[in-house]
Amino acid sequence: MIESLLHQILLYVPLILGAYFSLSLMKVPDLSLESAYLFGAVFSATFPCQQGVTPFLIALLGGAVVGLTSSMLNKIGNIPFLLAAILTNGLFHGISQILLGKAMFSLSATTQSEFFILCVVSIVVLLVGFFLLKSHLGYSLAIYGNNPHFFKQHAVSDRYVVIGGIVIANSLAGLSGYLFCLSNGFVDLTIGFGIILLCITALVLGRAIVRTNKQTILCPITGVCAYFVLQDFLVRTGFSLKYFNAFQALLVLGTLILLRKKQSQTLLADHLGV
């Protein structure tokens, strides 16, 4: 039971960490995570070489391309980020369709233990995330979410910070998409549906549990664990999953209200509440 729950959590660790960078730290409406998740999976699954670490690197690259597109549309094209993300989603949905060639694409089975692969990938991702959060760039991402004008005042390139942050976030989403498809044996065009709500719910839960304004890797880890423990619990107790989406929305709403209840301990409000 614990292993299957852990298995599911490990599939989404890179995604939630990526969402933490863009949605939580930078506070940008990074809806392109959805197409990064899809495109990372599609690009990697359809890449000719499927040996060794190549597919994982290709998945990261696929997600990075999506992040680069949305961030460049915003920073160089001067398109508001929400619109840039929506346009990017449309664009990469079409590209994914072209690459797949059909609605569903089967992946060949992995030769090594899947759980082992997930553990290794998650540990590497978490270690990289941990050191990145403590680095100059990690702090810059958080500063951007706090005061985007800071960079102009101090002659720091805000273009570099935004593009760098979004590329990292989306590349992690792409990796997560590939892990999900590897685990399920196929990739199709609908795997990205519901990803943003999953990210927001997990981050809100993480924030509610780890009540801090500082950037910490504990927040996304706790959030993703809490999300899947809760989901698993609901399934086990016979909760009618027809209402799962509504339950998710109510959960996010309730958590946000609780977070803001005590004014003196209010965590900084932002447009997404994450």
Partner: peptide, 29 residues
């Protein structure tokens, strides 16, 4: 206030002046 990252402490804000034009993902703060 445009000059400051007010979520962070006084000490941390001063440390941010080490970042340079392109904050490094490798250098720890």
């Amino acid at each position: 206030d445009l000059f400051l990252a007010d979520q962070f402490s006084f000490r941390e804000n001063l440390s941010f002046m080490d970042f340079g034009t392109y904050p490094s993902p490798l250098k720890q703060m």
